[in-house]
Amino acid sequence: MTKTKKAPIFSRKLLAIPYALFLGIFVVMPLLIIVYYAFTDMDGAFTLENFKIFFSGSGGDSFFETARFKTIVQSFLISITSTLVCLLIAYPVAYIIANCKLKNKSGLLLLFIVPMWVNFVLRINALKEVLDWIGIYNKPQWNLFNTVLGMVYDFLPFMILPIYTTIIKLDKSHLEAALDLGATPVTAFLRVTLPLSKAGIMSGISMVFLPSMTNYVVSNYMTFNHTKIIGSFIDECFKNDLWNMGSVTALLLLTLMFLMTWATGGFNTESETNTRGTSLW
């Protein structure tokens, strides 16, 4: 057999190089560095000591009494609450926009997106000023509320968009079929529309839940550094030259998120490719 065609010099695969480089330098490398620090001690020798320290108590207290544990619990509390509040606000908003008879739906949607174009530190600062003016800023009993408020304010668009894109793509005939089969509009929504928009909800949750666990800028600003979340803990570790401890925490967090995404079916891209990626990004 003779070779009839030379391999082309420029193949389409070459176009992937810039992105591959970017991935390598800014995603894979840092991850490896984190893994390295998590499994080494100050002198660079391999050790599992860091994990032991993370899960051990200090000064006679057990792990469950440490400030570290309290931070983790507090993080989860804030994260779950923020995600739930976001979902409760975002779903109706997305549903209403997607089903309204207006022609310019994206214009309406833009109203919810535009705040994202303003620098978020600026936004959080503004919110802080508003809270100060109302008189609930830097009051211990309001700290949790303020943090959740900040998170919701910041992450709401990330919840609305994926849900909106899922709902707008739903086939109306499924809803009609449900009504045709005798379901009341409420049942039809609960049994058909809601399950079918699950992909968007999941996508929104992962976009809000994970960041609100680590976005310590919000919690710091909103509570005058009083409310600690995992993000702030990691930050402090690195600031105080505790790189190994910081890396362990980050790695544990990463594993947790991975497990959660996997458990909620976030990796089943096959049927959800269209709905998980949001068209507006």
Binding site: S173, H174, A177, D180, L181
Partner: peptide
């Protein structure tokens, strides 16, 4: 009368089976 209160059922053009 809304569709859920009519004693008729429809076979849709593209079936409209519930994928979930």
């Amino acid at each position: 009368l809304p569709p859920n209160r009519r004693p008729v059922n429809t076979v849709f053009q593209k079936y409209a089976l519930f994928p979930h």
